[in-house]
C-alpha cells in the first residue's frame, strides 16, 4: 500500500507535465546483475542517455510492446542511438534469472541491458524510481502475475531522471522526449 501511495504521489506530481524543467524527484544509482551474470552499476551509464524501465519476461503483452516501441525509437534516432542505452529491470527476479533475461532480450533488435537481482535489490531500485510492483496470485497456469508501473524513465547523461515516457506514448512522442535528453 505504501508503494501504491508513492506511485500515486509521483503520478500526481508529474501529472501536469511530462517535461518538468528540472529533474524528477526520483531515481538514483543502483547495482544489479546483468543478463550475462555480471555485476552492473548504473554509474556506467554516465555520459549516455538511459531509458530505464521495469517489467518481467512472463508478461506476454505489455513488456514486449514496450521493448518493440523502444526498438523503433532507437532506429528512429539513427546515429544518436549510440548515445542512448536501454535498461530493462525485472520485477520478477524469482523467474527472471540472467539466462532468461538474455534469451528474452535476444528476441529484440535492441542492444539492451537486462537486469535482475535478489528480491531485496529489486525492491530497493523500484522504490528509488517510485515503481509499483506486486505479485498477484491469479487463477492461471502462470501461478502469479506481476502488476507493475509501465513508464520508461529517461535519464540524462548525468543520471538524473528528466523525462517520463508513458506506455500510451507513440513512438514519435518517445523520440521527441529522448531528443530533449540528448
Amino acid at each position: 500500500m505504501t508503494r501504491l501511495l508513492i506511485v500515486l504521489v509521483l503520478a500526481a506530481s508529474v501529472a501536469c507535465s511530462d517535461t518538468l524543467p528540472g529533474e524528477l524527484p526520483i531515481g538514483g544509482d543502483f547495482t544489479l546483475t546483468d543478463q550475462h551474470g555480471q555485476s552492473f552499476s548504473s554509474t556506467s551509464l554516465r555520459g549516455s542517455v538511459a531509458l530505464v524501465f521495469f517489467g518481467y519476461t512472463f508478461c506476454p503483452d505489455a513488456c514486449p510492446t514496450t521493448l518493440s516501441k523502444l526498438t523503433a525509437v532507437m532506429q528512429r534516432l539513427g546515429t544518436d542511438a549510440a548515445r542512448v542505452r536501454v535498461v530493462y529491470v525485472s520485477v520478477d527476479p524469482k523467474r527472471d534469472i540472467p539466462d532468461v533475461m538474455k534469451a528474452h532480450l535476444a528476441m529484440f533488435d535492441l542492444d539492451a541491458v537486462g537486469l535482475t537481482g535478489t528480491e531485496d535489490q529489486i525492491d530497493l531500485v523500484a522504490k528509488q524510481y517510485g515503481v509499483f510492483h506486486e505479485a498477484e496470485a491469479v487463477d492461471s497456469a502462470a501461478g502469479y502475475l506481476v502488476a507493475h508501473t509501465t513508464s520508461v524513465f529517461g535519464l540524462d547523461a548525468n543520471g538524473r531522471v528528466r523525462e517520463l515516457l508513458r506506455y500510451s506514448d507513440t513512438v514519435d512522442q518517445m523520440v521527441a522526449k529522448v531528443k530533449r535528453l540528448l
Partner: peptide, 20 residues
C-alpha cells in the same frame, strides 16, 4: 500449446495488471 488462457490487460494509471 500446453494450455491457453483468456486474459485482459488493465491499465490503472501507469500500472499494468493482467487478469484471466
Amino acid at each position: 500449446a500446453r494450455t491457453i488462457e483468456l486474459h485482459e490487460m488493465i491499465m490503472e494509471g501507469e500500472v499494468m495488471r493482467m487478469r484471466p
